[in-house]
Each structure stands twice: as structure tokens, then as C-alpha cells.
């Protein structure tokens, strides 16, 4: 269809343009803004490919959350230094946190070990994906077949966050 071609060419050109602008700007905020533009145009390309979920995840996580943190950091570096906050305090909060963690983990472990997993079974040919919609398929697969890698990935991310906190604390 001619309309899709026009949208494709426009967004692809904008993606290339913003990528070039991003690596050539001197001002880091301008670079970050062009990177956001790049993410948005790539999201349009995903929609043209019929991948709504990956497109909206691109906008939400990359363009929305991560770039906001990057811009925040750029502005913060040149402005003020964070006050020292002691991050390791033990008290009622850690007890409640421990109880919640144990409960959540037990809930997860029991549902994996004891019950047969709810959710979708069987293979996923293209017709079935289109019938169910992408979210049910992605969510179902992540929670059944690929549960272990999914949980491992989240643990790796958690380790990354804790590592970043420790590194940032050591510098001061």
C-alpha cells in the first residue's frame, strides 16, 4: 500500500537523520533529544511491521523512562551534588520487606512447583498469535515456557542496580 510506503520512508529517513544528529551534537541534551527522536521513529517502523507490543515498549521504556533518566543525570551533573544518604539501615522496613519478599517468592515458587501452570499451551503459529493478540502470547510464553530465563534476567538486572549503587557510593 502506497500510504505505508510513505510512512516507512519518512520515518526511516528521520531515524537516520536523528542518529546522525545525535552523534554530531556538542550539547549532550541535544544529543539526547535526537536519540529520543530516533527511538520514536524506530517505534513507527515496528508498528509498520505489525509489532505493536515492541513498538509501545520502545516508546515507554527507551524513549520515556531511560532517556528521562539520562537527561536527568546530564542536568544533575552540571547542577548540584546529591546529599549523602545512608542507604543501609535496618529497621521495621527491612523486616516488612523480608516478609513481603518471602511471601512473593513462596507464592511464585509454589505456583511453579505444585500447580500446573495456567496460561496458554501448545505451539504458536502465526494464525494463533493473530487470534489471541500479541500480549497474551508474549505474557503466556514468558510465564510458562521461558519462566526460568525471565526470572534470571530480572535477577541479573537487580544485581546491576545494586552494583551501580555500590559503585556510586564508593566514589564519595
Amino acid at each position: 500500500m502506497i500510504l505505508q510506503w510513505i510512512v516507512f520512508i519518512l520515518s526511516a529517513l528521520f531515524a537516520i537523520f536523528s542518529a546522525l544528529m545525535m552523534i554530531t551534537r556538542k550539547n549532550p541534551i541535544h544529543s539526547a533529544l535526537f536519540l529520543i527522536g530516533n527511538f520514536l521513529s524506530v517505534a513507527v517502523l515496528y508498528i509498520l511491521l505489525g509489532r505493536q507490543f515492541i513498538a509501545i515498549a520502545q516508546v515507554m521504556i527507551y524513549a520515556g523512562a531511560i532517556m528521562m533518566l539520562i537527561i536527568f543525570t546530564i542536568m544533575l551533573i552540571s547542577v548540584e551534588e546529591l546529599k549523602k544518604v545512608s542507604l543501609l539501615k535496618f529497621g521495621a522496613g527491612s523486616v516488612i520487606g523480608l516478609v513481603m519478599t518471602v511471601l512473593l517468592f513462596g507464592f511464585l515458587a509454589s505456583s511453579v512447583a505444585v500447580r500446573t501452570l495456567p496460561g496458554l499451551k501448545g505451539g504458536f503459529p502465526l494464525e494463533r498469535i493473530q487470534e489471541l493478540g500479541p500480549f497474551k502470547v508474549i505474557g503466556g510464553l514468558l510465564m510458562t515456557k521461558y519462566l526460568l530465563p525471565f526470572e534470571l534476567a530480572s535477577v541479573v538486572l537487580l544485581i546491576g542496580i545494586i552494583g551501580a549503587v555500590i559503585l556510586a557510593k564508593k566514589e564519595r
Binding site: 505493536q52 507490543f53 509501545i56 515498549a57 516508546v59 515507554m60 524513549a63 520515556g64 523512562a65 528521562m68 493478540g133 500479541p134 500480549f135
Partner: peptide, 15 residues
């Protein structure tokens, strides 16, 4: 189908 995610994405872009 992505209605709710779209709302959150737009809200975070508005910031």
C-alpha cells in the same frame, strides 16, 4: 489492543 500502554507511554513523553 495496546490502549493502556499507549496512555502510559504518552504520559511519560509529556514529562
Amino acid at each position: 489492543d495496546i490502549g493502556l500502554l499507549f496512555v502510559f507511554a504518552m504520559a511519560s513523553l509529556g514529562e
